[in-house]
Nucleic acid binder design. Structure first.
Lengths: 225, 225
DNA sequence: TATCAATATATTGTTGACAATTTCTATGAC
DNA sequence: GTCATAGAAATTGTCAACAATATATTGATA
């Protein structure tokens, strides 16, 4: 029964990769931070071998940049790069809506409604507002991408781009700046999905993300990071 | 002058990563192949340390899959996954055209024309036909993505998805099946770019890729790989 | 002959040591 | 005080050895 009690299901490199990635995405390892191997190997209680493997994997994910003989640095995004990501999001999440409109069941749509209702409740209280702004927005988008049933699309958006946006939000301590409007738009998108109107859902989603991008661009002209 | 003659500009792990990635994308390391560490470390004349780092980086790029205590395997795509990629291409290359229409200079458009003319000449001879089908098609798309000036878009398409398509073409020994029609469509896209009509360029590109996807889907119903 | 267990071999995972390079520090010249 | 240089310290790159696990082989049994 417990025949695989002896075999480990993960390696040290895998574990540390997960921890490092989480630390980077959550901002605990701030963008631009140098990755110090002796320090981290002590901190995680492992030798430098598996640690370096984890760092190389992060390099493959483009979460750190390695320069020979110098070391790895946590990536840091400037506003131009974030705007690039928003352009891609607009395109890809439009696709996600199109596909989701075909796949989503009534149950799926209810789930989306529940999520929005829950966010609405959270947004009432001031601390909840913070919660919604920080994570809730992406939760909604996350679910829709799942409904697209396109695995690679999911990987690109939920496994890469959303991580980077979280990173950037930590980096700049910024939150989505139009939560109430966004909330309304989210409901409209679910309306379209329920009506199985993929074209409309795509249009609304693209417009939704384009608005957020516009907000970012206007911020760009103010400060210059 | 030659003060940096002593410092290496790349590590063994970097070099081997490049070689392995090329080998995978070119099909020399066939999809599904097990990555044998002792064998490869002998072949490249390095120890297993940097080799494993290179493999971990490939894992980050999703070109190999590693199972603990078992090893790495070169990824292999099935048709469903390729169709997923085509869906994403349709979306992202539409975006690329939109952006390229804004950025492309007259010179850039001439470059695109030259490329197509060159392909036209190649396509005359039978062996050239093979060349065009194998690489020429992607060359055209590559250039347009460059003109989009969106660095991350370039990374996703040219640094990931095109690699995977090459991989798949090697895997199945298949070539794009509608080269003449594609050729015509390419010219139409350049027409739109020259006219600075981003909307039209996007429409044409999306239709162009959608056609290729349709061809794939009809092949899917015949054989089942 | 097929199946299972025990052993042997090969492969992967991990570590610590050493070499190569960079970064920090202190000394001295101007 | 600033700058350059030489040496010291720290960090990265590489390797070989060992431990842990998986795979292959052998032989015994039904």
């Amino acid at each position: 029964m417990d025949s695989q009690v002896h075999s480990k299901t993960s390696t040290l490199a895998d574990d540390v990769f997960d921890q490092l990635r989480t630390a980077i995405v959550k901002g605990e390892l701030a963008p631009g931070t140098k990755v110090n191997e002796p320090q981290l190997s002590k901190q995680y209680g492992i030798s430098r071998g598996p640690l370096r493997e984890a760092i190389r994997r992060l390099e493959g994910c483009k979460l750190v940049e390695i320069k020979p003989n110098i070391g790895a640095k946590v990536i840091s995004l400037n506003k131009v790069q974030v705007i690039e990501i928003y352009e891609i999001r607009e395109s890809l999440e439009g696709l996600a809506c199109q596909l989701a409109a075909v796949n989503a069941t009534a149950e799926d749509c209810n789930k989306l409604r529940d999520l929005l209702t829950h966010h609405e409740q959270q947004i009432q209280s001031e601390n909840g507002r913070l919660y919604y702004q920080k994570e809730g927005d992406l939760d909604f988008h996350y679910l829709i991408v799942q409904l697209s049933a396109n695995t690679r699309l999911f990987d690109i958006l939920c496994g890469e781009l959303y991580h980077l946006l979280r990173l950037y939000r930590c980096q700049t301590s910024s939150a989505p700046s139009r939560p109430v409007q966004a909330f309304k738009e989210h409901h409209q998108i679910v309306d379209a999905l329920e009506a199985r109107d993929g074209e409309l859902a795509e249009l609304l989603m693209r417009r939704h993300i384009a608005s957020a991008r516009q907000t970012l661009i206007s911020q760009l002209s103010e400060t210059n990071q």
